[in-house]
Amino acid sequence: MKTRRQFGHAVVLACLSLFALSAWSLDAPQERIVLTVTGKITEKNTPDSARFDMKMIEALPQHTFTTRTPWYDQPVTFTGPLLSDVLAAVKASGTTLSATAINDYRISIPLADAAQHGVIMARLLNGKPIPVREKGPLFIVYPFDSKAELRTSVYYERSIWQLKALDVQ
């Protein structure tokens, strides 16, 4: 169960992310698109979506954590923007994200997970860009070692690699 302090920290983190991104505008991608966000968003750079190239992802505030996962033998370090920052950049509203991978794997992620658990959209693995063959270029990752409740199949399944699209519902 969450304590009031933990909930308060999550709210402060979400507010700071929104404040930091309020001056950030969504320009048109100049390079290969790595992420498309659709659905209940108000900040777009096409008529019906927000598209990001890797430089746009890199321009968002970056965060790093090291955690153990079921996919690697040793703890690994992930770096990328908070998922909540990506959602703030597109001014998302809704309750659920439908995340889609390059191979069309789909998973639903509660929007609340982004702020509540400090989920990141990793672009670096141990300080290096993540190749497609190694689960990249984008990988939604939970900080599994931070809370025992995250070390379950529910959250492992939500950690989608080779992410290509988010639909906010």
Score class of each variant (00 low, 15 high):
L138S: 07
R123A: 09
W161V: 00
T152W: 15
V132I: 15
Q6R: 15
R4P: 15
A89M: 04
L166Y: 04
P75V: 08
G136S: 06
A114R: 01
Q162Y: 01
H63A: 11
T64L: 14
A20T: 10
T96C: 03
N126Q: 05
I130R: 00
R5P: 05
D48F: 02
S98E: 14
L35E: 07
T38A: 06
L60P: 07
P81L: 02
Y142M: 13
T79N: 12
G127H: 05
K40T: 09
L16Q: 15
I120P: 08
Y156D: 09
Q6D: 15
Y155H: 12
F65W: 08
W161Y: 07
D53T: 11
W24K: 04
Q162L: 03
A101E: 00
Q30V: 04
M1N: 13
H9K: 15
P70R: 14
F139Q: 10
Q6F: 10
C15K: 14
L83K: 07
P129C: 01
V34M: 06
R151F: 14
T77H: 05
D167C: 12
R151D: 15
T69G: 02
H63W: 11
Y72A: 13
I107E: 13
W161N: 01
L26T: 00
D104M: 08
N126R: 03
G39F: 00
T95K: 11
R5I: 13
A10T: 14
S93F: 03
G127E: 10
V168F: 03
D85F: 07
A10H: 06
D48I: 08
Q30N: 12
A148M: 13
I102W: 01
P143W: 10
I120E: 07
P110E: 07
R51P: 00
F144R: 11
A148N: 15
S84M: 09
L138V: 01
D85W: 00
A28C: 09
Y156W: 14
G80Q: 08
S25E: 12
H117R: 09
T67F: 03
W71C: 13
A50L: 00
K147Y: 15
K164R: 07
H117T: 07
K91D: 13
S22I: 03
Y105D: 03
T69P: 07
F52E: 00
F78Y: 07
Y156N: 10
P61S: 03
W71K: 01
D27C: 02
L60T: 08
S108H: 12
R133Y: 01
H117S: 02
D27W: 11
K2F: 15
Q62P: 13
V132N: 10
F7P: 02
P129H: 08
R123G: 09
M121R: 03
G94D: 04
Y72I: 03
A165T: 04
L16I: 12
V132W: 03
Q169T: 13
T42N: 05
T3W: 10
I41N: 01
Q116P: 02
L124G: 11
A114N: 04
